[in-house]
Simulated assay, not measured.
Amino acid sequence: MIIVYTGNGKGKTSASVGQAIRALGNGIPLCFVQFMKSDVQAGEQIFLQQLLQDNLYIGGKGFFRKEEERPKHREAVLACLKWIETKKETVSMLVCDEILYAYHAKLISKEEIENLISFCRANKKHLVLSGRYAPDWLMEQADIVSEIQEIKHACSKGVPAQKGIEF
């Protein structure tokens, strides 16, 4: 299955973590990679590290805001893809958190994502892709697409990110 969690609402990473927990609970081995988040010890990172150990890779460099930062972000994406290469044969599910944000920022190519999809389809492996801005071509290829829409968020009223809620 190719599963996509997208949209502008909060909860795409949470959905990906939930999918990983469901799979693990059913004995499905997986690896989880965060393409954009840095190792800031967010709640899900702490939990996943305990649960997955060396099957978790937090490869991001944080938010991509300045064009001069493109090389370091592209390098981080390439490191994530290289890490996946070392894991993909031994697991039944690949979870690629925030890969779609990386795609939207042109840090990963359509071809690189399609290579992951092709590998997973050919080898009967599940692939979870999350992030804002899922392109139409991906939503067409996916087996499951969930769009998470923001209705209301406290940050729009100036409330800072809350530990255990946003991180």
Rank of each mutant, 00 (worst) to 15 (best):
Q34F: 08
L100F: 07
H126E: 05
I84W: 03
R22V: 07
F47S: 15
I58W: 04
A42T: 13
R65A: 14
L24K: 07
K110I: 01
L48C: 04
F35H: 03
P29Y: 14
S38V: 15
I21Q: 13
D143W: 13
L30T: 09
A23F: 11
L94F: 01
G27L: 14
L116P: 03
E98A: 11
Q41T: 14
A122C: 11
L127T: 02
V17A: 12
A154K: 11
A20R: 10
Q34K: 10
L78Q: 14
L78C: 01
D143N: 15
P29V: 11
E147R: 15
N8R: 11
A122V: 08
W137C: 08
C31N: 11
Y57K: 13
C155F: 15
I148S: 08
V145D: 03
G62S: 11
G9V: 00
C120P: 07
G18I: 00
T13Y: 12
E114P: 01
L107Q: 05
L100C: 13
V77S: 02
D39K: 12
E89L: 11
A122T: 12
A23I: 08
I28M: 13
E166G: 09
S118V: 02
E112R: 15
R74Y: 12
N115C: 00
F63T: 00
D136W: 08
G62E: 10
D39Y: 09
F63W: 06
Q162V: 10
F32N: 07
G158F: 13
R121H: 05
I46Y: 11
I113Y: 01
I148L: 14
C120W: 01
K12I: 00
T13I: 09
L94S: 02
L107I: 00
D54T: 05
I28Y: 05
C31H: 12
I151C: 05
F35A: 05
D97W: 05
N115W: 00
K87N: 10
E114R: 15
S118R: 06
E68S: 06
D97G: 04
E75S: 07
R74G: 06
V17H: 08
R65Y: 06
R74P: 12
G59D: 10
G164K: 03
A134W: 04
I117N: 01
Y103K: 06
D97N: 07
P29M: 14
E140A: 13
E147P: 08
G164S: 12
